[in-house]
Simulated scan of single mutants.
Amino acid sequence: MRKYELMTIFILDEDKYKRGSDAVKATLSQFGAEIEKEEPFGDRDLTYEVKKQKRGRFVLFNIKANPAKISDIDEQFKLNADLIKYMFVQVEEKK
């Protein structure tokens, strides 16, 4: 298991945000990823319009996941209409 930071941007509408967030958590648990921390970053303007949205709700997840499953998680996230953007970043372990 490796540590990753997962930055997500959701649609601002409260129902869509809740549905999208629940779907992200369900997908992560489906593929055996552990959510260590969930940190809301608030509502912010996007640099450019994405999926006809100019603002989004940013949430950072610190997760542990099997590197082989990241591509499967990525495929499921592409199907989530309430998730505007997301990015995985591998966290380097300190020695």
Results as ranks from 00 to 15, higher is better:
residue 9 I to K: 01
residue 12 L to N: 15
residue 9 I to G: 01
residue 77 F to T: 10
residue 53 Q to N: 15
residue 68 A to R: 07
residue 17 Y to R: 06
residue 40 P to N: 15
residue 89 V to Q: 08
residue 85 K to N: 13
residue 40 P to R: 14
residue 32 G to Q: 03
residue 67 P to N: 01
residue 85 K to S: 08
residue 58 F to W: 11
residue 82 D to T: 04
residue 83 L to R: 00
residue 84 I to P: 00
residue 36 E to Y: 04
residue 90 Q to V: 08
residue 11 I to M: 10
residue 4 Y to P: 05
residue 11 I to A: 11
residue 35 I to T: 06
residue 27 T to V: 15
residue 23 A to R: 10
residue 24 V to G: 01
residue 10 F to Q: 00
residue 47 T to M: 11
residue 39 E to P: 01
residue 37 K to A: 08
residue 57 R to S: 10
residue 45 D to T: 03
residue 25 K to R: 14
residue 61 F to R: 00
residue 53 Q to S: 13
residue 31 F to K: 00
residue 62 N to Q: 11
residue 2 R to C: 02
residue 34 E to Y: 02
residue 89 V to E: 11
residue 88 F to R: 03
residue 47 T to K: 13
residue 34 E to F: 10
residue 80 N to M: 08
residue 82 D to R: 00
residue 72 D to W: 02
residue 75 E to F: 05
residue 58 F to V: 11
residue 22 D to L: 09
residue 52 K to S: 08
residue 59 V to C: 04
residue 43 D to S: 14
residue 2 R to A: 10
residue 78 K to D: 11
residue 4 Y to H: 09
residue 67 P to F: 03
residue 12 L to K: 09
residue 72 D to T: 07
residue 39 E to H: 01
residue 77 F to W: 03
residue 52 K to T: 06
residue 65 A to M: 07
residue 15 D to Y: 12
residue 21 S to P: 02
residue 54 K to P: 06
residue 6 L to I: 07
residue 75 E to Q: 11
residue 92 E to G: 05
residue 11 I to F: 05
residue 42 G to Q: 08
residue 77 F to D: 04
residue 74 D to G: 02
residue 79 L to R: 12
residue 80 N to Y: 10
residue 35 I to M: 03
residue 77 F to N: 06
residue 39 E to C: 02
residue 46 L to D: 03
residue 65 A to W: 06
residue 36 E to Q: 11
residue 1 M to T: 08
residue 70 I to Y: 10
residue 65 A to F: 07
residue 39 E to S: 12
residue 44 R to K: 15
residue 90 Q to H: 02
residue 54 K to E: 10
residue 39 E to Y: 04
residue 51 K to M: 10
residue 38 E to T: 09
residue 74 D to A: 01
residue 32 G to V: 03
residue 49 E to L: 08
residue 35 I to V: 09
residue 85 K to V: 09
residue 70 I to F: 09
residue 15 D to K: 15
residue 68 A to F: 05
residue 64 K to H: 09
residue 4 Y to M: 12
residue 40 P to A: 13
residue 93 E to R: 07
residue 84 I to M: 01
residue 15 D to Q: 14
residue 45 D to M: 08
residue 83 L to T: 02
residue 29 S to L: 05
residue 57 R to P: 02
residue 72 D to L: 11
residue 34 E to N: 14
residue 29 S to C: 02
residue 61 F to T: 00
residue 95 K to Y: 12
residue 27 T to M: 11
residue 50 V to L: 12
